[in-house]
Design a protein around this nucleic acid. Sequence first.
DNA 1: GTGAAGGGCCAC
DNA 2: AAACGTGGCCCTTCAC
Length: 599
Amino acid sequence: MEIFFQLVNDAEGLRKACDDLKDAPMLGFDVETTELDPYRGYLRLVQLSDGRETKVIDLKAFSNGWRTPAEQARDLRANADLAPLRDLLASPKVTKIAHNAKFDTKWVRHHLGCEVGGIYDTYLASVLISAGEGERRHGLADLVQFFLGRTLDKTEQVSDWAAAELSASQIEYAAKDAAIMPEVRAKVHERIVADGLERVLQLENECVMPIADMELNGFYLDTERWREQLAKVTKIQDRTASELQNLLAAGVAQASLFGAPQINLDSQAQVSAALVNLGVPMPETTRAWELQPLAEQYPVVAKLLEYRGAAKASSSFGENILEFIEPATGRIHADFRQIGAPTGRFACSKPNLQQIPHEEEYRRCFRAPDGRRLIIADYSQIELRILADISQDANFIAAFESGQDFHSATAAQVFGVKAEEVTPDQRSFAKRLNFGVVYGLGASRFAMMTGITKTEAENTLRRYFATYPKMDEWLRTQSKNVLTERSARTVSGRMARMNFDASDRSSIGAAQRYAKNMPIQGTSADILKRALTLLHSSIRDTNAKLVNIVHDEIVVECDANETEQTIEKLQNAMQKAGSEFVTRVPIKVDIHAADEWTK
DNA sequence: GTGAAGGGCCAC
DNA sequence: AAACGTGGCCCTTCAC
């Protein structure tokens, strides 16, 4: 394919180039950079293409210096010659088609100082289409091959983008990547429409800018507090490790003569063998919940559990997390994958800010810097509200509308007693049932976790579903339909395909549980994403910043004197997003301001 | 040495 | 024999 492109390297050329493109409804959009992280590298090229004409803008020509990435960013953001480019990029009227737009958007945001409006992300679109199934990869070259049947050469991708003079081959590569995007989008979008994924794709596309912002914002972590907590845990780990060594060595006769034979306390195999030696009746696994019942009778088991707790804390939540603090900002900029799970949930890594222990000792380390506040909001019982709404079960809905403690309200309904007569046991049963039902809980598992017999568990489950007949019906319908449809969908239309082995009962069972859970978990993700979009536009002109999300929770950092307004904005965004997807059940958002990420 | 797999455990 | 859903990280073990 022949490409017509133009290298832009002066103010007048940029003005003309942007003028040429500003009336196009859609533009292919790409950037070339010297690093993957905007805080660590330089933005070299911005490419825009209407599919026929491609503009390759060399930002080196607009920058006074390349001494540090931060300096380039300051320089470019202040450069008035780039105004036409910023206007074009920010305009929501011109769709920018990019592959993994979060990447390009972060660079533009940081180095040019503007938003990217009207994003269409072919990567997210491709992930939605494949819906968790198949081996298909989602790189741009893979999409070009799959949707256009052509080969895209990516060898220049990792070339030297800091070079004084870019080679003809580099510039042509850069141009091609942008030029091909409108064509890719057209083919991809045919599939999006055919699969009924337009609404969910819009949800995802609108969410890219908020997430790009969040990653650039980062979350402040108080290093000193973290180290203090780590020191405490390390001390406990050291003490329990030596105590555990001694207890385990007691089973070895010659230990006292030659010193204790050190065993690796982190090795299940070695620890397990040592425990057997001591006469501990070992369960099949050494998981905490299996060992817990033995802890009272065997002090060595109790010690092992104590050691495990400290070891987990110091390894997963130790020094390593401090290495993720970006020197340029002093904050943690984790990586959020927008479609982390086929259900639509986010996944987070480097580090995973979605698995920080709930204990205050850890959460208090994530705090607002001086003069700032954290606004912490989460959806109350969102998955159960979605289940109530989606199944339209009158009793389940009534339990929410009663405004009473939800698990007590359901216990009263299930066990046929007055709300004020619900015993702690009954409430606990109801709570486990309420949560379990979202995951497709079975009688065996319920019996095991509550300690009742399987027959009793079956009776209780029967009673539960008799109380909520429409919920029962919806769950059964999901189980039945997945066998023929081999897929499930959320309220936004997000789809998860399931390829199960029809001759394998456990494979069928897994698919059926998934078909019950996916629409619930996935609709919750839909709602969160919608809330982020609404929040983003309502805080755009303030100093409030999105800093973290955890499935049903949003954390915003704002100036202390903006606290009240920010609470209102976040509350409204979440409330509105919820009511767009859940119409028959009230949505409840718990929200408060704090100096630390704590309840 | 590197990488995959599996156990274990943190979050929702 | 039948394990309630979704992730990521750390560790050991084992294959290459």
